[in-house]
Amino acid sequence: MSSSPREYVIAKWIDPAFTELYSAARFVLRFFIEVFQPPFEFKEIIRQCYEIGYKSLPLITLTGFVTGIVFTNQSRPSLAEFGAASWLPSLIAIAIIRALAPLVTALITAGKVGSNIGAELGSMKVTEQIDAMEVSAINPFKFLVVSRVVATTLTLPVLMTYSAFVGLMGAYLNVHLNELTSFTSFFQSAFSQITFLDIYASLFKAVVYGFTIGIVGCYKGFNATQGTQGVGRAANTAVVISMFLIFIEEILIVQVTTWIRTS
């Protein structure tokens, strides 16, 4: 019996979408239940922080530094046109601390770490390593998922702060070479327009992005199916969904901070 187009759309898209959403919500809920239950995997969390944080430093350094230089170069002519070149350090600091550092760090980490988590757990899933943990009376969710999500959530604010620092150093280098501004006057000018709200909001964003990258990567990897193809799909969708969610979260957090700033 042939189904109507409406039934087809429901069966093909709507049902699976809600099933996936339900399954993801259960996964997130399980994380919040298990993260507070002993035993705590401190050793594994520290190892993951090293893997996720320390090993991302070269890439974060490069992207942060280049962002600072490029943004300064691109902003200078526009400001100079209005005779506002002296505002350059403030503009750069606002842009880097409020938006660029959290977003660039999150996107780079989603690409590097999110795909890595998705592929690693996906591979463990399809080769039955996760089942092997379970039958050895080890909680694989606690060992694999909780440790990774906690590590990404803790690490991303640190990476973001480092990225902002490196970005400002890149901007300073550019400004110093072009306008011969001293280190002290550059940073005095840069931080004159920065408030604690900017810093707190950025740190909060980094925490949210870190959690998103970790939980999406783990969810996709933990639920990988269909062999090596499934591993590739888990890695790929982990990155795509993380980035999509990061942009949505960015919009929401910016709306809230703008409302706090203006009220």
Binding site: T127, E128, Q129, V135
Partner: peptide
Amino acid sequence: RLKIGFSFQGSALYDS
């Protein structure tokens, strides 16, 4: 599960 040993078809050794 501590009293049950499970030997998997693909061995399922932790490859890391």
